[in-house]
Amino acid sequence: MNLLRSLSGVLLAAVLAACAPAPTSAATAPVGGYTVVKAYPHDTNAFTEGLLYRDGFIFESTGLKGRSFIRKWNLETGVSEQERIVDSRYFGEGIVDWKNRLYALTWTDEIGIIYDIDTFERIGEFSYPGEGWALTRDDKRLIMSDGTSFIRFLDPDTLKETGRIEVTDRGVPVRNLNELEYVKGELLANIWQTTRIARIDLATGNVTGWIELAGLLKEAGVTGTQDDVLNGVAYDAAKDRLFVTGKLWPKLFEIKLTPPK
């Protein structure tokens, strides 16, 4: 029995280690910080998966089966202007806008849903292999994460994969890439279950730096140890404003990045 217990313990430890997020404490890229510019209200029922800024509004997608929705809300007041409940079969994931469309991923169903961005009417769907976690875009392609260390590139009209890169920090793969945002030519990526955002060179996949946001947990009044983890990055290019939030957080923050010390 003692031997069986010992073997069981070893196996359990191995499984837990395999499922754990990639450690960021060993990262060798420089680590920068932030200052808070302003805090805005955020719905504490929103299990945030995707976030984007467009035409003065925040567009947000949330997860959990039976609780997933997409929403357009007023940044200043937090009041929802438009909302659509996602089919209860699906666990909603990331979103991205492209022209007059809104593309939305589902977690494990390998199905993406296409909505009219003005009415939220469902106008189509697309498929992809594996899991769907997050979406963003530059002016030519969609950029997708799937929870691994890989980033996929999709044609924005056909939604077919056109390529991919692996994200690494000094050669070490960075797993659990989650919510994404394209900002000034680089890719920002939340690392699931951590308080860090990776700054990624899209040409090489190299992490050029980290943004440490641990201090936001206290300001948001959350622990970050259960479901209320950091997730959600949006960017207002016209006014150069960067927004971050977390799952079930009561606040969304506008922040300015500070250089590594």
Rank of each mutant, 00 (worst) to 15 (best):
R54C: 13
A39C: 09
F126S: 02
S8T: 15
G63E: 01
A134W: 03
F57V: 13
N176H: 15
G56T: 07
R241N: 07
Q193F: 10
S61N: 04
N100M: 12
W249T: 00
D228M: 03
K184W: 08
A39W: 06
D118E: 13
D43F: 05
I165G: 03
W133Y: 07
L102Y: 00
W210Q: 01
I200Q: 06
T225H: 15
I191Q: 00
Q193M: 14
P260H: 13
M144A: 13
L12N: 15
Q193E: 13
W192P: 01
G215C: 04
L177E: 02
I123F: 03
L11V: 11
T48Q: 05
T194Y: 04
D118V: 10
L7W: 09
S68R: 00
G171A: 07
S127P: 12
G9C: 12
E93M: 02
Q193H: 15
A104G: 12
V79S: 08
R122E: 15
G232R: 03
L213M: 10
G124W: 07
R170E: 14
G171N: 10
L257S: 06
P260F: 08
F59V: 14
L52T: 06
S61H: 02
Y235L: 05
P129I: 12
L135M: 07
A14T: 14
L188A: 07
P259Q: 06
V37H: 01
I85G: 11
L187K: 00
V222W: 05
I191W: 00
V233L: 12
K99R: 08
Y128F: 09
A189K: 00
G94A: 10
Q82F: 06
E254M: 02
K160Q: 15
V36Q: 01
K184C: 12
G112T: 01
L51E: 01
W133T: 03
A46N: 02
L52E: 07
T168P: 11
T158W: 11
D155P: 12
G56H: 08
T162G: 08
W73H: 10
L3E: 13
E181C: 10
E219S: 11
L7D: 12
A26I: 15
D146W: 00
W133K: 06
T223V: 08
V183P: 02
T158Y: 14
S61P: 02
G32W: 07
A22E: 14
L154W: 03
F253M: 09
R175F: 09
K261Y: 15
G221W: 02
D146V: 04
Y103L: 11
G9A: 09
P259H: 06
D155Y: 11
D240G: 13
W73A: 11
E219G: 09
A17H: 13
E93R: 03
K38F: 10
I200Y: 02
E131D: 12
I197Y: 00
R152T: 07
W210C: 02
E121S: 15
A39V: 08
G209R: 03
